[in-house]
Amino acid sequence: MNSIFTISLDFELHWGGFEKWPLDKAKKQYFLNTRKLIPQLLDLFEHYEVHVSWATVGLLMHENKNQVEANFPDKKPSYDQKHLSAYHFLESVGIGENEQEDPYHYADSLIKDIISRRGQELASHSFAHYYCNEKGQTLAQFDADCKAITKASEKYEQKLRSLVFPRNQFNADYLKVCSENGIKIIRSNPVDWWWDISDGALNESKWKRLNRGLDAYFNIGGKTSYGINAIQQKEGVYLLPASRLLRPYNPKELFLNKKKINRIKKEMTIAAQKAEFYHLWWHPHNFGNHSEENLDGLREILTHFSFLQKEYGMKSLNMGEIAEKLEDGSILQPKADLNHKGTKTQRN
Rank of each mutant, 00 (worst) to 15 (best):
Y238R: 06
I301Y: 01
L256R: 14
L139G: 02
N262W: 08
R118W: 01
A172Q: 14
N339D: 14
N289C: 02
K147D: 04
K206M: 05
S225T: 02
K252Y: 11
F5S: 08
T138P: 03
S85M: 01
L302K: 11
G288I: 12
Q158C: 13
W194L: 00
S85I: 11
L317K: 12
S205Y: 00
Q81W: 07
E180C: 00
N229A: 09
K184F: 07
A107M: 04
F305C: 04
I301W: 00
L60C: 14
N219M: 13
K147L: 09
N203I: 03
D196F: 08
N2H: 06
L90D: 07
S85L: 06
I228L: 15
R35P: 00
K208N: 07
K206Q: 03
G221M: 05
P77H: 11
S53C: 05
E97V: 02
E276Y: 10
R161Y: 04
E12P: 03
N64I: 03
G96V: 06
G342I: 06
N289L: 13
P190Q: 05
G342A: 01
L37N: 15
A336M: 07
S153V: 06
C178W: 08
A275K: 10
S198A: 12
L246I: 09
G288E: 13
Q233P: 02
K147P: 03
P190I: 03
E253R: 15
C132W: 02
R161K: 13
S116E: 06
A336I: 04
L302M: 11
A107L: 04
K184Y: 03
Q346K: 09
N348I: 06
A86V: 14
